Deep mutational scan, measured.
Amino acid sequence: SKICLVCGDEASGCHYGVVTCGSCKVFFKRAVEGQHNYLCAGRNDCIIDKIRRKNCPACRLQKCLQAGMNLGARKS
């Protein structure tokens, strides 16, 4: 099975251009559409994995963007 390129959980498919799990898919959509201005309490290098993905939305969003997630991406 495929793994989420953001948190490493089991992926549910290709979302916004990137193979991700459902949790990261929903997080990314809400983060971008809600125009959240997340700030990292650390050094913008928090570990984002299945267990810690909820700890720092700033670093999670950064990881989504680095993976290439794009709200305008067509479903493939």
Rank of each mutant, 00 (worst) to 15 (best):
A41T: 10
P57T: 07
C4Q: 01
A41H: 11
E33Y: 07
V18S: 09
G34C: 04
S12T: 06
Q62T: 09
Q35F: 05
G22D: 13
L65K: 06
C40I: 01
F28W: 15
N70W: 07
G68Q: 04
A67T: 14
R30S: 15
V6E: 00
A31F: 06
N70H: 11
V19W: 09
G34V: 06
F27I: 02
D9W: 03
S76Q: 07
C40V: 00
T20C: 09
P57G: 09
Q35S: 11
I47E: 11
I47G: 07
A58K: 10
V18C: 15
V26K: 13
A67F: 05
E10H: 15
S12I: 15
S76M: 07
R52H: 09
E33C: 06
R52L: 05
G34F: 15
L61F: 11
N70M: 10
L61V: 06
Q35P: 12
H36A: 14
R30Y: 05
K2C: 08
G17P: 04
R52D: 08
C4A: 00
L39N: 13
K2N: 13
G34L: 05
T20E: 02
I3Y: 11
G42I: 11
K75C: 10
E10W: 12
C64A: 11
Q35R: 13
C7P: 00
A67E: 15
T20G: 08
S76C: 05
Q66F: 12
N55T: 14
K25G: 09
R52M: 05
S23P: 14
R53N: 08
C40N: 02
C7Y: 01
V6G: 01
C4P: 00
M69P: 02
R53Y: 03
K2Y: 07
Y38E: 06
G8R: 10
S12C: 05
V26E: 12
R52A: 11
S12L: 15
L65C: 08
D45W: 03
G8N: 03
F28V: 03
N37K: 14
K54Q: 08
G8F: 04
K25C: 12
F27T: 01
I47N: 12
A11F: 04
K54G: 09
K63P: 01
C64G: 12
C7S: 00
H36V: 13
V6C: 03
R43I: 11
A67D: 01
R74L: 09
S76I: 04
S12D: 03
Q62R: 10
G68S: 03
M69Y: 02
G42A: 13
T20N: 15
F27Q: 01
R53F: 09
V32L: 09
R74V: 14
R53D: 11
C24N: 02
V18D: 04
S23C: 03
C21G: 00
V32D: 11
G42C: 07
S76K: 01
A67Y: 03
G72R: 08
V18E: 04
N70S: 15
L5D: 04
G42L: 13
R53W: 11
N55L: 12
N44W: 07
Q66A: 14
D9Y: 04
K25P: 09
C21I: 01
Y16W: 14
C7M: 00
H15N: 07
A58W: 06
C64E: 00
L65T: 11
A41L: 06
I48V: 11
P57C: 10
